[in-house]
Design a protein around this nucleic acid. Structure first.
Lengths: 150, 150
DNA sequence: AATAACATTTAGGTCACCCTAACTACAATG
DNA sequence: CATTGTAGTTAGGGTGACCTAAATGTTATT
């Protein structure tokens, strides 16, 4: 089974490939915050496991299996980013947290998050009332519906 | 710095201590899903680092430092559990996911999650309208406000 | 083509955790 | 009080992911 970190590598290869059709060791090292030696190593593993096509000193491409895996990762990540930014986490942080989160969540949990994101997105208004309220709550610490109470 | 797994150990010790005032190796192994040998080892480490008081073959207690650390973990976990169950993740799963999540989240993310939980809790109604709507959305896949549309 | 500059790989570690198997301390019971 | 069972420890390994330093292959420049 695909280790947690392997998924990150696949996703990184996927992203980098979108432009040029392949990825290089250096770029991967850079984008994963890791030394080239580690990438080299990991690529061997991924290639043995059939996720990438990789001959030493050549560039990397994903196999079909690899693409599929990478897509799944991307999809999860997107849900998480959307959710996190919706509740007011700054983009930067949302992205890196999403990265970390996607590994550990139970599919059911992910399903609910997906639901939640869809729920927000499918709301009649661009900013549903309650989301507005939430934002205000974050600013003021008070639920706007309780303003005049107490 | 306290490794991810160390936090789990501290939290487990904390929980087990609540009743009897201390924890035993076996219980910890059990509750962490790990063999006693591993616990023994970890306890040595935690004690060297000043989080627990532990003499071989005696029971374990947390130092003040240990309690503080454990409390932080518990607090994070609670927020996460509340949030996850609020969006409809089953209790069981929410608990184990919360466990995994607490390690990886940026403080800012956690802050927003905390906000979100408080927001829900401080709502005038026990079940705010939108939460009802969300539940319905989960069941039916449709946003209730759009019922008669298209 | 020779050399310099850069990209990649290899070899040999480290670190945090976990495991098994064999051992030891201890308490309980006959 | 000797025996047996249980809790805990030790020793020795293993794994995954990372690193540094020293090759080695590749490309570009003169």
């Amino acid at each position: 089974m695909l280790g947690k970190r392997s998924e990150d590598y696949l996703e990184a290869i996927y992203s980098l490939s979108r432009k040029k059709g392949y990825a290089k060791v250096m770029e991967l090292a850079e984008s994963l915050g890791v030394k080239p030696a580690s990438v080299s190593e990991m690529l061997d593993k991924l290639s043995k496991e059939g996720y990438v096509i990789y001959k030493k000193r050549m560039h990397v491409t994903l196999t079909d299996k690899g693409v599929e895996a990478a897509r799944k990762v991307r999809e999860k990540r997107d849900i998480l980013i959307k959710f996190l930014t919706a509740i007011g986490v700054p983009e930067e942080i949302a992205e890196s947290d999403a990265c970390a989160l996607e590994h550990v969540l139970h599919p059911q949990t992910l399903r609910q998050l997906r639901n939640f994101v869809r729920f927000i997105e499918s709301s009649p208004a661009v900013n549903p009332r309650w989301l507005e309220h939430f934002r205000e709550f974050c600013r003021t610490g008070k639920h706007p519906c309780l303003k005049q109470q107490r």
